[in-house]
Design a protein around this nucleic acid. Structure first.
Lengths: 187, 187
DNA sequence: ACCTGAACACCGTTCAAGT
DNA sequence: ACCTGAACACCGTTCAAGT
C-alpha cells in the first residue's frame, strides 16, 4: 500500500526490487492475467517504459517471479526435512500442499505453461532444486525406489492442483489438513 | 487449412461451429495465450465483431472450448469402462494420462484458472460429468473408499500434469506407457 | 546509468449501420 | 437475424530524448 505513494528516485537499483514486490501483490490479488506491465509501472509510480531497464519483457518478469516462488518452495521443503519429523514423507506432502494453497497464484505461475522451461534455464534450475529434496526422501538407487518417489510426487502434486481448482469437494465439517493426511497416508 | 479460404456466407448458424473448429486448431498450435479473437475472425474470414453474435466474450469462447474438451474426456473414460478391461482402475488411469498428453493444450484449458468454475455452471457440470465415471470405480459408500478414490485420482492427475510440464524426465530408452503403468500400479 | 514521453502496432469490445 | 466498418480504451514494446 505504500508502494503507490513513493516518489523517491529509483536510481540505485531498487526499482527492480520494487517491481518484483508490487508484482507479487498484484499476482496474488488479480492472478497472472491481471498482472499488466503498465499497471505495475503505475503502481510503482514510474513510466511505462521504465521496467524494460530491468526486465526484457513481461515474460521475463513473470519468470523472475516464478524463480522466487521456487526458492521459497525449496526453503519450505528443506525446513521440513531439517526438522526431522517422525514421518518425513507425510510431513513433506503436507507442506507441499499447504504451500500450494497458501500461495495459490504464485504456485500456478510456477507451473504455468506460459513459461516454457525449455527456453528458460534459470527457471528449470530453480524447479530442479526445489524437487531435489523431495526426491531424496524415497529415491535411493533402486528402480522401484524411483517409481515409488514419482508416484508419491504425482499424488501430492495432483492433490495440490485439484484442491487449488476446487475440484475436490470437502464433506461437511471435514478438516482439509486431515483430508490431506488421509490421502497421503494411502500408499 | 481450408477454413481461411472459405468466403461462403455464414448465415445459417454455421459460424459458431466454424469458430470453434478454427479455435481448437489455434489452441493446439499456439496455446491459450495465442488464441486471439481477431486472429480467429481473420482465420474464418469474418469481421472482428462477428464472433460477438455467438460468444459474449473471449472467455465465453474459451469456456465453450473447455466444455467440448470435458465432453471428449468423458467419452474416452466411458469407452474404457464399457470395454470392461481386467484392471479397470489401471486402464482408466492410462486413458486419463494419454488424453492429457494427446490433447495437451485442450487439457490445460480445461483446468485453466482463467476459467473460474464458480461463475460458470456449464463448465462445472461438464467437469463433474467427466469425473463421475472415474469416481464410481473405487468409490462405493465407505469413507475409506472415498479416500482411496481421491488418492487414485490425485495420483493420475498429478502424473498427467507433471508429464505435460516436462517435470518428469524419462530414463534413456524408457517407454512412457510403461512408466505410467508402473506408477499407477503403486497403490 | 537510469528514466521519461511519445509513438507503433496491436488487442478485446461496442455500436451504429448495412443486407 | 447476422454481419460489417469504424471507433474506443486499452495493451506490450521501442526509441529518441532528457538528467
Amino acid at each position: 500500500m505504500s508502494t503507490s505513494l513513493s516518489n523517491a528516485p529509483y536510481h540505485h537499483g531498487n526499482l527492480r526490487h520494487a517491481l518484483l514486490d508490487a508484482a507479487l501483490l498484484m499476482l496474488q490479488r488479480d492472478g497472472e492475467a491481471g498482472l499488466g506491465l503498465r499497471d505495475l509501472a503505475r503502481a510503482v509510480g514510474v513510466s511505462p517504459a521504465a521496467p524494460y531497464r530491468h526486465f526484457d519483457s513481461r515474460a521475463a518478469l513473470l519468470e523472475a517471479l516464478a524463480v522466487t516462488g521456487f526458492q521459497r518452495f525449496t526453503a519450505a521443503m528443506n525446513a521440513v526435512a531439517a526438522s526431522q519429523p517422525p514421518d518425513l514423507l507425510a510431513a513433506m506432502g503436507q507442506a507441499y500442499v499447504r504451500f500450494a494453497l497458501d500461495n495459490a497464484a504464485l504456485f500456478r505461475l510456477m507451473f504455468s505453461p506460459q513459461l516454457k522451461r525449455d527456453n528458460r534455464p534459470g527457471l528449470r534450475m530453480a524447479a530442479d532444486a526445489a524437487f531435489a529434496t523431495l526426491r531424496q526422501v524415497r529415491d535411493g538407487d533402486s528402480a522401484s525406489g524411483r517409481i515409488a518417489a514419482l508416484a508419491a510426487w504425482a499424488k501430492v502434486h495432483g492433490l495440490a492442483v485439484l484442491l487449488l481448482d476446487g475440484q475436490i469437494a470437502l464433506q461437511p465439517g471435514e478438516d482439509i489438513e486431515a483430508l490431506i493426511g488421509a490421502i497421503i497416508g494411502q500408499h
